[in-house]
Design a protein around this nucleic acid. Structure first.
Length: 411
RNA sequence: GGAGGCGUGGCCGAGCGGUUGAUGGCACCGGUCUUGAAAACCGGAAUCCGUUUGCGCGGAUCAGGGGUUCGAAUCCUCUCGCCUCCGCCA
């Protein structure tokens, strides 16, 4: 949630700093509603004050009646205001480029992109029998993954490797609910604007989490931290569920964009003055993991139009995938500043007594399915084998990925 | 799924129709004492909104919504959450 005072104070400046993320007319509407809300509030409060001072039942009743009428008006205005306000995305940092994909800035490239190409991972996965979308679609619909044999082992190995690496960097592990209520999804900013992307459990009015960020961000709803209790760094392994409505054309092949994928998320609650440094740390943690996997990666500062709703600044980290012959986003690290904390009411009490909203940061460390895909493509050798990177051997318990043959069929 | 109980400030815990935003304890902050710390003693301090240059002033908040009343943390009602017992179950 954006700070209404910033809009009230200087609507022009605010609209400019949003860098095209909301229309000017919406901002103007907020200004009007805000003014109306304050006027009505003043009237209602004045009536309440008068009512409180009167003990004579006749006139008190009269004032009460009038007060209730005004309260209705106040409620109506407040509701519209909050509705609009909750759909305004976060204000990008000043140095975030304005625009869309072509305005993204490549900050760092870790190595030279190889000349040679190879087969895409869906072909490798099918060949080895470890990725099986055909069978998956018999029990569900398209774009849900089914991994078998060493495919399943590799998935788990990656997860365990990521968790171990994040733990070394100081992220405490927590396990979270995979279905959450409406307030929680509002808190991190996926609602109200992006309801179509979420799976909803209608009977219970719960939502399947689209990312571990959602439960993580709601860990300290309505909490006031003492200053020295922060920062807090967590890692959350979870499946992520996304309807991907409206992106059917972009779903593509293989494991790149599915309705379900695994991710280890890193999430921090920080003091405002330390969140910039924290974001840099997130990026270096992710890059460290990708280096150990032997990937070539690049870090991209997203432009205003490419960032998520809650982010003030986002770095995407992409790895080169030899088979698809393209960069593949495997992580997105964002500083949301106080945007989510306003929605979850997560605050800090300074030593001075001042109360401020906490800053929150989130990042993928890392998206499992896409790393799985890149690993198959990048490690696929001419002999048709896929060697396991050193860092994963102890989690895989073997040094190459073998074709899947169900043991019950093998003999 | 059935029966019952409970939700009060950072935490614990009183209050169950009338200056109670709320007694008390712990934790916290400042001070006295001490070489320093602890203990003891004294003092301070809830949050949000509106208004004001500021002191301040007004309003709201005892899970959340609605209601009764001149007046509600206290009564009624619905919703949500937690706990206990029974049933079912990995």
């Amino acid at each position: 949630m954006v700070d209404i005072k910033k809009i009230r104070q200087n609507p022009e400046d605010f609209a400019r700093r949003l860098k095209g993320r909301a229309s000017r007319s919406v901002i103007d509407r907020i200004v009007v509603l805000d003014k109306s809300r304050r006027e009505n509030l003043r009237i209602v409060e004045d009536l309440r004050a008068r009512q409180k001072k009167i003990s004579d039942s006749q006139s008190a009743r009269k004032i009460k009646e009038e007060r209730r009428r005004k309260e209705e008006e106040l409620k109506r205005v407040s509701k519209e205001l909050n509705g609009i306000l909750s759909e305004i995305p976060n204000v990008p940092d000043d140095d975030v480029p304005e625009g869309f994909e072509d305005k993204n800035e490549i900050i760092e490239v870790s190595g030279r992109v190889p000349e040679e190409k190879g087969p895409p991972h869906w072909e490798i996965g099918k060949m080895l029998g470890i990725v099986d979308f055909e069978t998956a679609s018999k029990m569900t619909t398209s774009f849900w993954p089914l991994l078998k044999g060493d495919g399943a082992r590799l998935e788990m190995a990656l997860i365990n490797f990521f968790i171990e690496e994040n733990a070394k960097s100081g992220f405490d592990q927590i396990c979270v609910p995979y279905a959450v209520n409406e307030k929680a999804v509002f808190g991190t900013g996926q609602l109200p604007k992006f309801a179509d992307d979420l799976y909803r459990l209608e009977n219970d009015n719960l939502y399947l989490i689209p990312t571990g960020e959602v439960p993580a961000g709601n860990l300290f709803r309505d909490k006031i931290f003492a200053e020295d209790e922060l920062p807090l760094d967590f890692q959350i392994f979870s499946p992520c569920f996304r309807r991907e409505a409206g992106s059917w054309g972009k779903l593509g092949k293989g494991l790149v964009r599915n309705h379900q994928f695994h991710k280890v998320e890193i999430f921090s609650f920080a003091k405002p003055e330390e969140s910039d440094e924290k974001l840099k740390n997130f990026v270096s943690v992710v890059c460290g993991i990708l280096e150990k996997l032997g990937f070539i990666y690049r870090v991209v500062l997203l432009s205003s139009g490419e960032m998520g709703f809650s982010a003030a600044r986002t770095y995407d980290i992409e790895v080169w995938a030899k088979g698809m012959n393209r960069w593949l986003e495997v992580s997105s690290c964002s500083n949301c500043r106080d945007f989510q904390a306003r929605r979850t009411n997560t605050r800090i009490k300074r030593k001075s007594g001042e109360i401020v909203f906490a800053h929150t940061l989130n990042g993928s460390s890392v998206a499992v399915g896409r790393v799985f895909a890149a690993l198959l493509e990048n490690n696929f050798g001419e002999n048709g084998e896929v060697p396991v990177p050193d860092c994963l051997k102890k989690f895989m318990g073997k040094d190459r990925i073998e074709p899947f043959v169900a043991t019950s069929l093998a003999n």
